[in-house]
Computed example of a mutant assay.
Amino acid sequence: MDIRECVAVLTGAGSGIGRALAQALAEQGCHLALVDIDPARLQETAEQARHQGVVVSEHPLDVADRQAVAALPEQVLARHGRVDLLINNAGVALGGTFEQVTVENFDWLMAINFDAVVCMTRAFLPLLRQRPVARIVNLSSLFGLVTPAGQTAYCASKFAVRGFSNALRLELRGGPVGVTVVHPGGIATAIATSARVPEGLCEAEREQRMRRTEKLLRMPPAKAAQIILDGIRRDRERVIVGKDALILSWLERLMPVNYWRLLPGIDKA
């Protein structure tokens, strides 16, 4: 896929991988419709991208708001006239075992990490079908490949993104719209450190979890964005980002049930 002069819709553009992707796409001449729940951060990303001379529109909204998502295609068309690329990047994290996580928090995470991917895809697929070449890029996670304890909700959402993407790809095969699913490993963003945690945890345990998580976040978002962008250009169906994700993906294939025995502490990540 040649992304020069394409129009990309990108969610979660206000920070982390989303902001890095916006910058990388803009540098390649891709016009952007940027989406984020935080208007201030969204504006910062948009201003950075405009320095590359591309057309950028800002769309502050909550991707869990189905009515707002349904109205978004018309807004993007009014500004850009078409859509070639949809990148569902927005996501949140939630730590805790299944019994620790409340129903409200579980539903909150699923609404953003999975339901929003489905709603955005439903909203923009008709526009993507009108293009000679188009692509949907859905960000899953390393935890869409492996399942550590203490990540029940997050794993459920990211495995759902993986399954949805793989099945949708087969349904769209033979047409102009391709589907890529991305599995980032430990990327140095704020998603993990800003994750919700179960109520009732003492401050010491919260800090211990934070330190343990921060040790796993190593790859700069800009490097992750370049790997993802390369996968888009090559029409890759699956993109694994980071050596940690690559190693664990192979371990899971070789030992789909018992891989965790080789990784002390993964069930506490």
Rank of each mutant, 00 (worst) to 15 (best):
F98W: 10
P60S: 06
A70Q: 11
E104S: 02
A156K: 02
Y154E: 04
H51W: 15
C119G: 09
F114I: 11
G144E: 10
L85F: 10
A153K: 00
N89M: 09
T152Q: 09
G91L: 01
R82D: 01
F124K: 03
Y154R: 01
V83W: 12
A134H: 10
S157Q: 05
L145Y: 14
L77Q: 11
L127V: 00
H51V: 15
F114S: 10
T147A: 14
D84T: 03
L72F: 07
G95W: 08
A153H: 00
A116L: 09
V137L: 12
W108S: 03
T152M: 11
Q67K: 14
A71L: 11
Q48I: 11
V137A: 11
R50L: 15
I112A: 03
I87Q: 04
R122K: 05
Y154F: 10
R129K: 03
G91D: 00
I136W: 07
R122W: 08
F98S: 08
R135C: 10
T102Y: 13
V92L: 15
E99P: 00
Q151F: 14
V92A: 14
V55P: 14
L85N: 09
L86N: 08
L128I: 00
F114V: 10
S141I: 02
G81F: 05
V54N: 00
P148D: 07
A160V: 15
R135K: 11
N89V: 06
S141C: 07
D65Y: 02
S140C: 13
A149H: 05
C155R: 01
L125A: 02
V56M: 15
G53V: 04
F143P: 03
I87M: 08
Q100I: 04
Q52R: 11
L86E: 08
G95S: 08
S141K: 02
D65G: 05
A93K: 03
F124W: 05
L139C: 05
A78G: 13
V63R: 03
L145D: 12
L125C: 02
D115R: 13
I112V: 04
R129I: 05
A93S: 12
F114G: 04
V92D: 09
E104V: 09
A134K: 06
L86R: 06
W108L: 10
S157I: 05
A160C: 12
Q100E: 07
V54K: 00
R79V: 12
S57F: 15
G150E: 03
G81P: 02
G95T: 09
R129H: 06
W108D: 01
C155K: 00
D84M: 13
F159Y: 14
P60M: 09
G53E: 01
L128T: 00
F114H: 11
L125D: 00
Q151R: 04
A68M: 07
P73V: 06
V83R: 07
D115H: 12
L85Y: 11
G81S: 05
M120D: 07
L125H: 00
P60Q: 04
L145K: 14
G96W: 01
G144A: 15
V76I: 13
P126S: 01
L61R: 01
A49V: 12
I136P: 03
L77N: 07
A160G: 14
V76L: 15
V146Q: 07
V133S: 09
R131N: 02
A70K: 13
T97A: 10
Q75F: 13
F124A: 08
D62W: 00
